[in-house]
Every structure is written in structure tokens, then in C-alpha cells.
Amino acid sequence: MGIVVVPLFDEKVEAWKAWAKSLSNEKSNEFNDFNKKYGLTRHNAWLAETPGGKVVVALHEGPGADDFLQKVAESNDSFELYFKEKLTEFHGMNFDAPPLPMPVQMI
């Protein structure tokens, strides 16, 4: 299982909500194929408020969860390029930089 917590730019909240909704609607077939390709059986995201601002908490479950983002970062397939573009737009993620370590379970 992978959990990612990333800040969400204030000016991008409504655009992120629309994008998230599109992954369950008009882009659902592509999103489902994308998840199957990377061995994810569950891929959910929540919008959360923190004292530091809004964040997105994403959960990736399935046999491909541990290296999911690393594999997406290396891909040049069309949906993966689109997905990375959106993550960069909304969260400032840099897929050219080394990946950040995944959260470590403490309890």
C-alpha cells in the first residue's frame, strides 16, 4: 500500500476537484486501465484541510502500489503524461527529480 500526501495550490482547488471528478466520469475507462496496468486494485484521493493549507491524500493499494509513482514517472505513454502534467499543475510535483521516500508506518 502506498500513501501520498501532497499540498494543493490554493488557486487550483476547484480545477483539482473537476479533474478528480473526471477520473470517475469521462476519463474513467482510461483511469481504470491505468490502474490495472500498474497493478492497483484501489486508487483513491481525499481533499483534506490542514493548518498549513489544503492537501490531497492519495491511497494506492494492490501489488503495484510500492513502486507505482516511480513507474509512472518513467513512462511516456499518453495517459501517464497527462496524469503527470496534472500532478505537476496541482501539486508542483517534479517527475524529473529523484522520488521522495514513501511515508513510513510508525504504529
Score class of each variant (00 low, 15 high):
Ser78Phe: 07
Asn44Thr: 15
Ala20Pro: 00
Gly92Asn: 09
Val56Lys: 03
Val5Phe: 00
Glu89Lys: 10
Phe68Met: 07
Val4Thr: 14
Pro7Met: 09
Glu80Thr: 11
Asn44Tyr: 10
Trp46Ile: 08
Thr41Lys: 03
Trp19Ile: 04
Ile3Val: 15
Asp66Asn: 12
Glu74Thr: 11
Arg42Tyr: 00
Pro98Leu: 13
Gly53Glu: 09
Val6Arg: 14
Thr88Asn: 14
Val4Pro: 00
Leu100Ile: 07
Leu87Phe: 13
Ala97Ile: 07
Glu11Val: 12
Gln70Ile: 12
Val55Ala: 07
Lys84Arg: 15
Gly2Val: 10
Val56Tyr: 02
Pro7Tyr: 05
Ile3Tyr: 07
Glu30Ile: 02
Ala45Trp: 06
Val6Ala: 13
Ala45Gln: 08
Asn44Cys: 10
Met1His: 12
Glu30Thr: 05
Ala45Glu: 10
Phe95Gly: 04
Phe90Leu: 04
Tyr38Val: 00
Glu14Arg: 12
Asp33Asn: 12
Lys21Pro: 01
Leu47Val: 08
Phe68His: 14
Val104Asn: 11
His91Asp: 03
Leu8Val: 10
Lys37Phe: 03
Ala48Pro: 02
Asn44Glu: 14
Leu23Thr: 06
Asp10Met: 09
Ala97Asp: 14
Ser78Ala: 15
Ala15Trp: 02
Glu26Trp: 07
Phe9Tyr: 12
Thr50Gly: 03
Trp16Glu: 03
Pro51Asn: 08
Ser78Gln: 14
Glu26Pro: 01
